[in-house]
Design a protein around this nucleic acid. Structure first.
Lengths: 364, 364
DNA sequence: GTGAAAGCGCTAACAG
DNA sequence: CTGTTAGCGCTTTCAC
């Protein structure tokens, strides 16, 4: 009623089914090459005894854990302002579950935790890691890379050390931040706007940098130049968006469009525009980024924005990692690097970039 | 450079230090009863070899995993609208990390996943579980209870089957929903309000029910009765709050105060009140619940609300579980239930209720 | 105090 | 196809 004081072992099942441990093991692990009736008998014994394999014993010999670490390295509480990570986690969880893998969550609150995480990963407790480290000059990606654990990054990682920037084999999943930004700004241009401002994200994150680059691409291209007075640095938060918009209005009261680096900061901008008596989109058109569910849709006015499929990104990260793991099966990855991989599967794409789409609502 | 092809074992460390495996093991696990200089020599060998114990091998013999499952059973995507779980997770993570325990995250998307979770927990992969199952009649708490895994629930669980409702030993952590609601409504009464409405939360969750009860307590007590036309059922979301407020204004245009079951729905109510031309708090005072960071503070006007320390709840859940685990050490918990526990430590409090505090801002 | 030896429960050759 | 036999790396009595 309370606890199974000691759960049945393979041995017990074998005894009950009148076979050897090896046979039971085979049946439990798929049952290839075991005659039907025997397998059936074993399965029944398993059922009756309520046998559940001991994962520790299995890992000890297989060196597989069927577990993946998810590392979220966000010193700030920003993680929690945004449904971003939650959605990503959900995608990851679904994919891992579908492949019978467990998700070990490693949250870090600053550099102090980095050593712990690195040690854990190097300790071989998990088969691989999914790492979110969106900040430039974060030492964590490097540490993890050195730990030698198969890893997929969420968001284009920055290595600080630029010699490694292009290192192949560093897998990551990101959305097309730059392309999405271009689409957004082009949309504003198409609306006839000319004094298009940009409220940036936190520029220590690659996503913010890439979106900024996309904005500059179009401004240079379509409008023949970038006017620095139209760019104001912010931080992805609503409060930051407000501050930025106020600055902007001060500096460039003639602004006729705003591309905000994400929906949350667009929200702040909308609020300030409303306060200042500007109509959106008549006086100032606004475009956001993310299309994060309740925010964009319920903004006033509903926000035109660039959608990225966050959950799918999570799912894809997990899939990539799992593929790499089974692909690497009995692949020694030994000291010998001399001969280039003949196997095409080895040349995993460094980054997978998911497309973005412009969602037109009322704000632009 | 790539992978540590095979990590060093105890054996290797022992060889290097010139001692036996047993001695190394002792040192690694605290080093009681090993002479200083020897211990030092072992530690150096560990350092030099970069030895990390193999958790699987250890678990196999100790039957301990130093891992705890966190089960979040939210079929709806609501989990992600609210920073609630993220904050809770953070608290849990901090506490587990402090005790060198890992966090295995189990997300479920409906009944189909329940069996999987139950099997996993029963499989003895983790030492205990922290379970969030906020919905009435959720079969999961029952399943988990039967799995015989030490468990602490987040939020007062509902067993559906009411015979078990008071079952002792079912640990949970919650905030004082009812008391907090009372405080909120009393505050409104103190402000001279008499036609105080309540926008409920999703009433299939105990937190919503408890807050509603608190509202009724005060209305009955201070104002001599409950007027059903002042209560409108909602669902904890901003959109739900809007709908509810609209209904309310229709039905009771004379309403002079609103107690919303959480900040998010209060936000919706504020929006509708503004649209309808009411001033807050002059015409209608509004109080929320949760004091969830960006929401309450940045509402317009800033929201008076009942604060619960969500992160602390998480931390407490973890602490409670961990205490129970070490407390239960070699405690057989055998089939024999006949004699009541003599040990005082056995009588763990069923529920730990954290206090709430009213945070006064501008809205009431 | 320290070492030797016996498994924890499972998988993976290898025989038969 | 099925059983037998070694361990995986660690902790833990039990002698010394």
């Amino acid at each position: 009623m309370t606890e199974a004081v000691s759960r049945p072992t393979l041995e017990a099942v074998a005894a009950r089914a009148g076979v050897s441990r090896a046979t039971v093991s085979r049946v439990v692990n798929g049952g290839d090459g075991v005659r039907k009736p025997l397998a059936e008998r074993v399965r029944r014994a398993v059922e009756e005894l309520g046998y559940v394999p001991n994962q520790a014993a299995r890992s000890l010999v297989t060196r597989r854990h069927d577990a993946v670490a998810v590392v979220i390295a966000e010193p700030e509480a920003r993680v929690f302002a945004d449904p971003f990570f939650a959605l990503q986690l959900r995608g990851i969880s679904k994919e891992l579950t579908a492949h019978d893998n467990q998700l070990v969550l490693l949250l870090t609150e600053g550099r102090a935790d980095h050593a712990r995480v690195a040690r854990y990963l190097a300790g071989g407790h998990v088969d691989g890691a999914l790492v979110f480290s969106l900040h430039l000059d974060d030492p964590l990606p490097g540490l993890i890379h050195e730990a030698g654990v198969p890893t997929v990054f969420g968001g284009r990682p920055d290595w600080g050390d630029h010699t490694r920037a292009q290192e192949p084999g560093v897998a990551y999943v990101d959305c097309d931040n730059r392309g999405g930004a271009r689409t957004a700004v082009r949309h504003l241009v198409g609306l006839g706007r000319r004094r298009i401002a940009h409220i940036t994200g936190a520029l220590d994150q690659t996503s913010a940098v890439d979106r900024f680059d996309g904005y500059r691409d179009v401004m240079a291209d379509a409008l023949g130049g970038n006017d620095p007075s139209l760019v104001v640095e912010s931080d992805f938060t609503p409060a930051g968006g407000e501050r930025a918009m106020r600055d902007l209005l001060d500096r460039r009261p003639d602004v006729d469009a705003v591309f905000a680096a994400n929906d949350l900061s667009a929200l702040g901008a909308l609020r300030v525009l409303r306060e200042s008596g500007r109509r959106v989109p008549e006086d100032v058109a606004v475009v956001g980024f993310d299309d994060v569910m309740p925010v964009a849709e319920q903004a006033d006015p509903p926000l035109t924005t660039v959608r990225q499929d966050i959950e799918e990104m999570g799912r894809l990260m997990a899939r990539l990692l799992l593929q790499g793991l089974t692909g690497d099966r009995d692949d020694p990855v030994a000291e010998d690097h001399t001969q280039p991989p003949a196997d095409a599967r080895d040349t995993t794409p460094a980054g997978v970039i998911l497309p973005t789409t412009l969602i037109r609502r009322a704000s632009a």
